[in-house]
Structure formats: structure tokens, C-alpha cells
């Protein structure tokens, strides 16, 4: 069993294909931005009912979030969520999300 565990760990090390999000200072951005995946998916536009956000750049995301937050843009749920983020939060998570989706 233990041997098996070690072996798989080694294999995992060699075959890791998923992009690493660990840079020295972006764990906080990850924490802010990754819950967006729960509804929007993680980049591949799957057309599952909720509009994909994978084509947005950072500025576009930030502008959309601010428009939802102010109510200027109609939404069912996005205004309720966007109200939970400061301008700083929005800039940080938008930049991080845009970087994930290239």
C-alpha cells in the first residue's frame, strides 16, 4: 500500500499537466477568484446555461463586475455576489482569472 502511494506520487510529479497557480503572491487572488469557477466553469466555454467568462480580459471582467455591482447591468445573481467585493478585490480577482484562462 505505502509503496503504491509513493509510486503514484512520483508518477504524479512527472505527469502534472495542469497549470500551476502557485506564484509567490497569488494565493489570495486564487482564493478570491476561484469560486467563480463554480458557476462559470474554469475556462473552457461549455455553454452550460451560465454565460462563459473565458473570453474576457482583466479589464473587461472588472468592468462587468462593477456594472453588476452598481445595478447598471441587469442580473439575477451577479449583483448580490459583486456587492461582496471591493474595487481592490475586483481588480485582483479579474487579473488572476484572466491569467488562468489564456
Amino acid at each position: 500500500m505505502i509503496k503504491h502511494v509513493l509510486w503514484t506520487a512520483l508518477l504524479g510529479l512527472m505527469t502534472c499537466a495542469t497549470p500551476t497557480v502557485l506564484a509567490e503572491d497569488n494565493l489570495r487572488d486564487f482564493v478570491l477568484g476561484s469560486p467563480c469557477f463554480n458557476c462559470h466553469g474554469d475556462g473552457s466555454p461549455k455553454g452550460n446555461g451560465i454565460p462563459a467568462i473565458s473570453s474576457y480580459d482583466a479589464a473587461g471582467l472588472a468592468a462587468a463586475l462593477k456594472a453588476f455591482r452598481s445595478g447598471e447591468r441587469h442580473s439575477t445573481v451577479m449583483q448580490r455576489l459583486a456587492l461582496g467585493y471591493s474595487d481592490d478585490d475586483i481588480e485582483a480577482l479579474s487579473a488572476w482569472l484572466a491569467g488562468q484562462q489564456q
Binding site: 463554480n38 458557476c39 462559470h40 466553469g41 461549455k46 452550460n48 446555461g49 439575477t76
Partner: peptide
Amino acid sequence: AYARGWYASMASD
């Protein structure tokens, strides 16, 4: 419809 979209995204996440 968004509820179903949430389920699909969540499951794949």
C-alpha cells in the same frame, strides 16, 4: 436554467 449550469460547472470543478 442557471441552477443546472451551476451543477454542471460545479461537478466539473
